[in-house]
Amino acid sequence: MDLLTTPLHDMFGPVTLSYVFLAMGLNIHYGYTGLLNFGQAAFAAVGAYTLAVSVASFDIPFVLAILLGVLAAVLLGLLMGIPTLRLRADYLAIVTIAVAESCRLIFSTQWKSHFHARDGVRGFVGGFRDLNPLPDYEGRVLSYNRNDLWVMIVGWALVALVCLLVWLLMRSPWGRVLKGIREDENAVRSLGKNVYSYKMQALVFGGVIGAFGGFIGALGNASVVPDDYNTDVTFVALTMLILGGAARVMSPVVGAMLFWGLFSFMGVLLDDVMSSNQITMIRWILVGVALMLLMIFRPQGIFGDKKELALDAR
């Protein structure tokens, strides 16, 4: 019975939600613009830490703290983009992965009075929970407690909003320029578009969406811990995106839910056979293998159509 309910529980929970945002951001980067951002975790980390530290250390009101988090993500995008976006695609990948690792390093070792090293930041969710309109209840409804449910309501509503925004943007001339850059940035440049500026816009926009993943994750856990933002987090989001099929509005949502469903299902399935530590490692190995196999055999995702694949092969 757990075999079904646990995956189902996980598929909609706050953790999945935060990954949906990360993957939605990567969809803007990789799916639509062709930018390789291996440091999406850094956007989430910077968003989450800004929110948490603003509230916990400086008593800044919740909504203002969210805005500061967004601002921090914008700045991070500029930091990553300015040195790299005029260069070959690899440089962005290298710098983003380096920034993500460095962020984690800094959060876990510096300014301990604010970041609290590996213990992480706590005590910042009060403002958000005070807004919870749900009637007081103990225990669980639909297997979620009151706080989780509130995070989920807000989170999924935001997912719907972001999907709508992405859909609107991607059918606009703005989205057309991004897709053009993905196909061949020199062609787009030869038509008079400022490619650098569009790549920067895409990087920042996708990064801000990723920061929302950081907010949701932080609110769901009621804590912000450096190791929640290691580079593997980015790779998982990337796997989700490709699983769902990049460059489709809903693919990050579908990919993330499917991924967590499978991931969780495997955990329950193996529960009796091996230790939880081993299960974790086995599952991660499989994630890596799955990412490789997807990119080799189904780069258009499991729902993608063959026609696009054929175009890639040309």
């Binding site: 001339p173 703005w174 062609a187 175009l311």
Partner: peptide, 25 residues
Amino acid sequence: LSKLTVLENMRLGAPKQSGERFWVG
């Protein structure tokens, strides 16, 4: 641009499109 349609390729060439701005799109 392979994965854009022929017509989208053409439209991309048009200059001064206000819809190419993020906030207008």
